[in-house]
Amino acid sequence: MTVAALKIQRPDAPAYADAPSVARNLLPEEPLFCFSAGQLRDRLATFKKGFPGEVSYAVKCNDSEPVLRTLAAAGVKHWDVASVHEMAAVRRVSPDAVFHYHNPVKSRREIADAYGIYGCRRFAVDCREELAKVADVTGSDPAVEIAVRLVLPRERTSSAHDFSTKFGAPEHICVELLKDAAARGFKVLLTFHPGSQSREPQTYSRHIEAAARIAKLAGIRIGKLNVGGGFPANYPNSKAPALSSFFKTIATATTKAFGAGNEPKLECEPGRGLVANCMSLLTRIKLVSTDGDDIFINDGIYGGLMEYMQAPELQPPYRVIRDGAVLTGETKAWKTFGPTCDPLDVLPHRLDLPATIMEGDFIEFGTLGAYGLATRTRFNGYGTHEIVDVEKVLNA
């Protein structure tokens, strides 16, 4: 072999190219997640290059150490967190992390731990009672930022998950909260969330326009505006517009609503839109019914496929693997059950898989970097998922 024919592999390069390579070499009996740090870095670069402001990460979406470590190494400094437990996970890989505690409801102990242990100086509120709690615990520290969370009525088809039913204050309450927080000596800003897997860039425009109205009515010039997450990923049944269309819409709407030269600094906190395409789930077929069209696999809705059950439009792409290669051929619709004893553990749609599938074949489900690991349970003792580094994972 000539020197020119040698393939030089980086010391930190993944040992496996993809899920078929993992299946061939490891023959895993338990479900596992394949993780591509390269695809995650590429997606982060798209956000950092295109979004007109600070890019943070919504840790709730995937708090696994490989994801957090990759993002920290790639330059993420700000982290949107919903609990002090997430702060602890981030601090292990990012000692200088800046936390945005954007869960609008927190106990006094949680506020105190965030403030005292983790140095958090950003707290979201959407009611007077929560603002009073933060003030009591922090002593109205002028270094603390209060992010007032606004909510607008949801547009019927704008997102896969509606975030308007639990958190957020209507415009007139936001006006009063801004005034109250400023009077207490806090720094103030506004934040919103358009809903997970938001497909309409104009949804951001509506919220930005509302933020400008609120600030004007309150008589306060806000220094920052956090436009939340919601940025979509591509799924077979939920195609996403280009991220550039969201970035352009947000920048244009902010200038129009606040006026050129008066724009607040923009922030975003993507979760799904950032990490969805960096992981896939590798499962194995445990049984194929010869008397019907049922198959049983070693993971399901109590594991890495929970969100698929909650939002069928977010069906992940999938493919069958045998002997380290993708299995093709004539397909049929298979009813697919998970491994638990619960009859609810069945995927919401039949899967079109090769008619020749058999026990021991693998099924890779792609685009599961978002909420695949985060929502799994330990029901029936299942739920332990190893994470294996690969160069590339399946995406829609």
Rank of each mutant, 00 (worst) to 15 (best):
L150G: 13
R156E: 15
D113R: 03
H100F: 14
D136P: 07
K179G: 07
I117P: 00
E130N: 09
P95E: 00
V175F: 05
A72V: 09
A143D: 14
T203C: 06
H193G: 07
P95H: 00
D80L: 04
Q202Y: 15
G168Y: 10
W79V: 00
V93W: 02
R199L: 15
H78N: 13
E155L: 15
A143Y: 06
A73V: 05
L152Q: 10
D126W: 08
P153L: 01
N103H: 14
E145C: 11
N103Q: 13
F99K: 00
R122P: 00
A112K: 13
F186S: 04
K166T: 14
V93A: 04
D180N: 15
R206Q: 13
P153M: 04
F163V: 06
V151T: 15
A82Y: 01
R108Q: 14
D80N: 13
C120I: 03
R154N: 15
Q197M: 10
F99P: 07
L177Q: 08
H193I: 02
V81W: 00
V90A: 01
F99H: 03
G119P: 01
Y204E: 02
V84P: 00
R154G: 14
T157S: 13
Q202P: 01
L178G: 06
L178S: 05
K166I: 11
A88V: 04
H78Q: 11
L152K: 09
E130D: 11
W79L: 01
A210I: 09
K166C: 11
T191E: 11
C120F: 03
K166L: 13
Y204M: 02
S140H: 10
N103L: 12
A82P: 02
V148P: 08
E176Q: 14
L131D: 05
P201H: 04
G119F: 04
A160C: 07
F192G: 07
A160G: 09
V125Y: 02
K133M: 13
V93T: 02
P142V: 03
K77C: 12
Y118F: 14
L190I: 15
R91L: 04
R109Y: 12
S205N: 10
Q202W: 15
H193K: 03
A132G: 06
C120S: 11
P170L: 05
A147N: 11
V98N: 06
A82L: 08
P104S: 03
S196M: 07
V151Y: 10
A73L: 09
V151W: 06
S159W: 08
H102E: 05
V105N: 06
F167C: 05
T70P: 02
A210T: 14
T191G: 05
Y118A: 01
P95T: 00
K133C: 12
E86S: 03
A97M: 09
A112Y: 09
G116E: 12
K106L: 09
C174W: 05
D180V: 08
T203F: 01
F186K: 03
A72Y: 06
E145P: 02
G185T: 12
R206A: 11
H207D: 03
I111R: 04
P170W: 09
V105M: 08
G195K: 00
T70V: 13
E176T: 07
S94L: 03
R156T: 15
G75D: 06
V98R: 07
V76M: 01
R156D: 14
W79F: 03
A89D: 07
A210Q: 10
V151R: 15
A89N: 06
A183M: 12
H100K: 10
A112F: 11
H161I: 15
F99L: 08
A169N: 09
